[in-house]
Design a binder for these strands. Structure first.
Lengths: 341, 341
DNA sequence: AATTAAAATGGTAACGATACCATTATCATA
DNA sequence: TATGATAATGGTATCGTTACCATTTTAATT
């Protein structure tokens, strides 16, 4: 009940006294809310540093209220929900804002999820694909003065905040990696075409292949929809081909499909990675669950979610207008599902 | 910034005025913190109801500080982290307590995770298997006056709070379900023996088989460790047997192993569920990812996490001493991986 | 130099709840 | 019935911030 005192250190008044100014000025520095002279800001900032001051969020919230940020979730069963929530709530509790989760499948119309959040009084909202690419959604948000942030969109709106990775570059990097392993005939399994990142990933693949002077024939392009089942189906057709004609590497637009392809390969006695290399995208939990573990492109979802909440909170509190777009770095994770050819 | 007013309705003073008492008395009713006459409580409770009063957590926190609750997580890559966090954070933000997550793998010694949390000043902690069954962990917590709650333990300590499902009954129900489908030779894949629920689940299986008068031969019991890989290995041995000798149903102690078994079956051209039924346990994301989707025992993780935080918060705020153990209801989820024999 | 505008800072109150202490009602017991 | 203990209630101060307004300083303009 009073463990706050164990950790609670300096208050704003301590800082003010230490710096020889009023608490108000310290508050202004902390919140970047009004003009403070350069000299004074320096002094206060070093006092904050010195005393290790951290604003008491509860007290602030008592005075100013809490920023409510809505999060629309497309798939509550997704394998990366954990990472996402982890990041979002870490930032949420650090910044003292309230997070409201709204699962998309709970509504007949996608826009209803957004309406629900608006009714609950959010002032900012995080939109994942595919709703982040819906013009209507952005318009609806704007009409209610709700700031909408596009999360992991393939082509984010320029005028509104966004957090994403460079899907194109990620797919391109993976393609180059596969090519570097000696693969020439590489198949690509496309994702749900209504998700913008699916398109960027495909483009990244195609451009990288072209850069390497490699042809991509039609029989090496498969249409999936990001689901395990679609991966299963693709794999079935794929491995039914004569071995000599088969691609030596398969790059799926997400891990779930890649995992399915591994499962089928495993069953049809096609050795992974000896006979065929398989790569995924996202690095969700399933990538390190399956065996052999998946080589994939890691999307730092936790960091991205954290950043998304940060950007929205900052925007809503008007502390800063600076960076509205954040492109997180992807990372190629080499595991056991890929090998030399 | 001031969207709180849009939703913020009655304050404690409004309630007090409405009920014709002082704010203090209302506070006492809300917090069950001291004696209030029956008559007055009734009156205040109906006033609360009437005005739709919800305590302002920020204001309360400003005055009393925030309860810090630590959560130790055994596997950050787990497929049910999402559900768990969802529940924990829902409760956390509803009750206004701070949640600190500490992943177990980040430490060389399991107890170090707990020590870290204690150092960060938590006053309560949620312990999953296997650490929830460690006497040392409970002793360490007690030494620092930290309340420890066992989460999903197979045999929770009686004197400390716990949230769990009846693993024994769940496994038993699934076994009876398989028997009801006509299966007589049923294999069981055991989980990591250091996790207490793994043991209860196995016992549930054995007892249910015995109840039905069915023998379980040694070649129908396999040792896994909850991992996908171990499921893969078991499946390999299992399906290598002659078809006439094979069990007609396989019950794995968790979904991950069951998913692996499905994958192998699929590959070896053993039709699921026509030739073999496969069942899992937990109902994590992977259960509805694989194809055919997994029949499994649903563990309401989200609800459980919510309850765990609730119990800890209540205990720490001493509002009530009542229920310290919560046994959540499991549910048998029939999907496509099981069928009649 | 005088005037005005703008920038920089400070003082005070209040956000909504609870801790703490003071007061009053109630009840048992001698 | 008086007495003291305990239960039931109320009053006030305060948690750490920030909103709001007042004041002072600085800069710009005529």
């Amino acid at each position: 009940m009073k463990q706050n005192h164990s950790k609670q250190g300096a208050t704003i008044h301590d800082v003010a006294q230490y710096a020889g100014v009023s608490a108000m000025t310290v508050s202004r520095v902390v919140n970047k809310s009004a003009s403070v002279s350069e000299k004074m800001r320096k002094k206060i900032e070093s006092a904050i540093e010195e005393l290790n001051y951290v604003p008491n969020l509860a007290a602030r919230a008592a005075r100013t209220g809490v920023n409510k940020i809505g999060i629309i979730f497309s798939n509550p069963k997704s394998h990366n929900l954990g990472d996402f929530l982890m990041g979002a709530f870490t930032a949420g509790s650090r910044l003292g804002c309230e997070l409201l989760i709204e699962p998309l499948p709970a509504h007949p119309e996608p826009l209803d999820a957004l309406k629900t959040l608006i009714n609950k009084g959010v002032s900012g909202v995080i939109l994942p694909p595919p709703i982040c690419d819906s013009l209507e959604a952005h318009q609806l948000a704007r009409k209610h003065s709700v700031t909408a942030l596009s999360f992991a969109s393939g082509n984010p709106k320029l005028h509104s905040p966004a957090v994403l990775i460079d899907d194109f570059a990620g797919a391109s990097a993976m393609t180059h990696y596969l090519i570097g392993l000696g693969h020439k005939k590489i198949a690509f399994v496309k994702g749900d075409p209504s998700h913008s990142p699916a398109i960027s990933r495909f483009e990244g693949f195609m451009v990288a292949m072209a850069e390497a002077g490699l042809d991509v024939e039609d029989d090496c392009i498969f249409q999936g929809d990001f689901s395990y089942k679609s991966g299963l189906d693709v794999a079935q057709t794929l491995f039914a081909q004569d071995k000599s004609q088969r691609p030596t590497a398969i790059f799926a637009a997400n891990d779930e499909m890649a995992a399915a392809i591994i499962a089928v390969a495993h069953g049809m006695d096609v050795k992974v990675p000896e006979e065929v290399s398989i790569a995924g995208f996202d690095d969700t939990a399933i990538a390190s669950t399956v065996w052999p573990q998946l080589t994939t492109v890691h999307q730092p979802l936790q960091q991205m979610a954290e950043k998304a909440v940060e950007i929205l909170d900052a925007t809503l509190r008007k502390t800063t207008q600076e960076q509205k777009h954040f492109v997180a770095p992807f990372k190629l994770v080499e595991r056991e599902s890929t090998g030399h050819f």
